[in-house]
């Protein structure tokens, strides 16, 4: 017997699977998919923005806020200058058209490579409960941009802040239909506690995550 048949056979025997009780099992699967019932979750109140800002801080992300998308490049330039980082970045193709050059930034719209220092992305939505970005991969939103560079800057429209992960899934189902290849939930810079359980920021991913909230977009 091949491994698949063998394993499934043993599971079926152990569960007492018969032709008679199989429909009930299949019905339970369908019922779960139809209901998509949510587990217990915290009630966050009305001010999701305040919560998102607070939790982002807990996750060691820094936060800035601007009025419109067009103001983002200047905010990026300011952030990089303050930290004496190079005024050069890769950006999601989705945001290629923002006035980067005007702000004095050399920006390329492509997937990030190993030696890119700064990556600029947006997000599919942002989750207030934990200060988390939810990103969805697509041709104009590649996953590596938020991962390879030492500095990750993310554009977060206020209109895309939701309460919890469940709300992110609901948005994804409504707007994308099926899930993209990669949904990444990102909560601050990468870290490790593997040596003496001492938390160190900057493991394999970014050392810094900077969020630029955008009011009108």
């Amino acid at each position: 017997m091949d491994a698949r048949e063998d394993i499934l056979f043993r599971v079926r025997v152990a569960l007492g699977r018969t032709d008679a009780n199989r429909p009930a099992a299949a019905a339970d699967v369908q019922a779960a998919f139809a209901a998509r019932s949510q587990g217990p979750r915290p009630q966050l109140g009305a001010d999701l923005l305040a919560r998102f800002r607070h939790e982002s801080g807990v996750q060691s992300s820094s936060v800035d806020e601007v009025a419109t998308l067009d103001e983002v490049p200047a905010a990026v330039a300011r952030y990089l200058a303050e930290r004496q980082l190079p005024q050069r970045a890769v950006v999601w193709p989705k945001y290629a058209a923002l006035p980067w050059a005007q702000a004095g930034l050399a920006v390329e719209a492509r997937a990030a490579q190993g030696d890119d220092a700064v990556g600029i992305t947006g997000c599919f939505c942002a989750i207030a409960e934990t200060g988390t970005l939810m990103t969805c991969s697509a041709p104009d939103t590649p996953a590596a941009t938020s991962l390879l560079p030492e500095t990750h800057i993310a554009i977060v429209p206020l209109s895309r802040i939701v309460a919890g992960m469940e709300d992110g899934w609901a948005l994804a189902r409504a707007e994308l239909g099926e899930l993209p290849r990669a949904v990444n939930f990102i909560s601050g810079p990468s870290r490790t506690g593997d040596i003496e359980q001492t938390i160190v920021i900057g493991a394999h991913g970014p050392y810094r995550v900077h969020l630029i909230l955008v009011r009108d977009c």
Binding site: Q59, E129, G131, R181, S187
Partner: peptide, 11 residues
């Protein structure tokens, strides 16, 4: 509260 990276990978 949450791990830094949570990925859901499909296809």
């Amino acid at each position: 509260h949450i791990s830094n990276y949570v990925s859901v990978l499909t296809g």
